[in-house]
Nucleic acid binder design. Sequence first.
RNA 1: AGCCUGGUGGUGUAAUGGUAGCACAGAUGUUUUUGGUACAUCUAGUCGGGGUUCGAAUCCCUGCCGGGCUGCCA
Length: 562
Amino acid sequence: MSELQDSQKEAPLDFIRSIVHEEVEAGKNDGRVHTRFPPEPNGYLHLGHAKSICLNFGVADEFGGLCNLRLDDTNPVAEKTEYAEAIMEDVRWLGFDWEDRLCHASDYFDQLHEWAIQLIKSGKAYVCDLSAEEMRKKRGTLTEPGVKCCFRERSVEENLELFAKMRDGDFEDGSRTLRVKIDMSSPNLNMRDPVIYRIVHADHPKTGDKWKIYPSYDFAHGQSDSIEGITHSLCTLEFEDHRPLYNWFCENLGIHHPRQIEFARLNLNYVVMSKRKMLRLVEDGHVSGWSDPRMPTIQGLRRRGYTPESIRNFSEKVGVAKRDNMIDVALLEHCLRNDLNKKALRRMGVLRPLKVVIENYPKDQVEKLDAINNPEDPEAGSRTVPFSRELYIERDDFMEDPPKKFFRLGPGREVRLRYAYYITCTEVVKDGNGEVVELRCSYDPETKGGDSPDGRKVKGTLHWVSAPNALNAEVRLYDRLFSKENPEDGEDFTSNLNPDSLLTLSNCKLEPELARAESGESFQLERLGYFCLDSEDSSPENLVLNRTAPLRDSWAKLQKRN
RNA sequence: AGCCUGGUGGUGUAAUGGUAGCACAGAUGUUUUUGGUACAUCUAGUCGGGGUUCGAAUCCCUGCCGGGCUGCCA
């Protein structure tokens, strides 16, 4: 408890943790805290889910409680085991453990069915023969009350009989529903005799063909929480209007009553996060699939090179509140860099190669030079990089007519090649079009390792790769998927797609050490950014790199301004 | 239009009647064999109008603006 008070001083609790804290202090639920993450297995998890996962597992952990993973599988026409498996994989990858508490709403179908009968018997539920269309008409509108239908006064016996026939598959889909009798004139539309069971002749991934009727979300969710002994049912704002119904079921069924608390969902700029819109991107081929590295799905982020730690940290930093928000992707990138700066091994690679020949360096000589793996982490040790007469440097690192603050290579200029030597550009070789195709340089043998014994300074340090030892690679550079901060602004969000969200570079040059890189491993290409092997397309013969995020670049920023 | 809900720097989030703070972004500088990192400094905010109070982001009234709700989706 003192630990809690300490952390409370350091970081103030968000409104949900404050509520939980108060209730624990007050001894509610015997001081127990139990949450759950309840996705519907009808799609892939995204950053918004990550926030919810971190919140639910985080709150449980901080208060010494538990968090269940519950698949909310009440609608067999939309759900697939494929999705359920992907969900579990993603939650696990994010670093959370539900131990033996993998639950399914479908585990409770029998109990739910009994409760439905209980409601019928107490005159609180009835079978309704209205079609969806008719029901909509009778429900009223936002401003007008609904009207009671004639089926509302059916006898308990008739309701029981009809409901049994619904269950037995005697009726067609949509022909009847079981509704709960609340208040057709409630200003809250959810209370106007909501449907709690509908007829669906579809096999269920878990229960097979056992059921021809399935409970609605409202009838399943709160009760599932109740059965699992959940104390705090955290959900997003759009369920606020459902809370009275949630409470109604717990009260009228006389069962354990968790507290539903709603928070604002996460929005990220320059991307869309709704299932429907992401599906459209996939189906229309605007992205390569759900795991496209530009997608905000967990799978997309993972393939892009985002680490679980960075996403967890991001989820914490975005905070929890009830107001609508639009988070800047810069925060996500910050979290990534913050994590990888400490952990990623440094390597050298050249994206847009420019050949350099060191004229005074012996032909056929190859030196092994020591290079530090991570200046932020002495434990990471060092490696060796080959140096030879012919090298590649970045095209951007040379300018024939450099402006004032350009610290890199130019005719007659001296720069340092990282961990190697000082070199001076002596000649610029061009092709027929006046394009620079090669640089002739000289090196100073005294500066081996990158230091000059005479104390001579250079302004710039360049990354490079030895040409005869270079690995070829394809590198994919990603930018924001949409060019508009809020793509959903206009009529059709796809009109805001950023045509340059993916830039593929081939014939990139990498230092040989990268042949040992493994899928899932992140590394920094010095001065360029954080990268990883593409988990789907990279092979030892055909290296494919994804740029997770560029390094901060104050030179690029300066250039942009001018 | 009815109900629910929210409005604090550019963005996000604290402060719950007592000095408006933190993070990201932005700007400047120091250090640097990554124009990275680190460090330092700076910029910038309580939706408007009334009221209560010695004192209001916080309480009251009122206006304005945003979001959600009319699935047998969740």
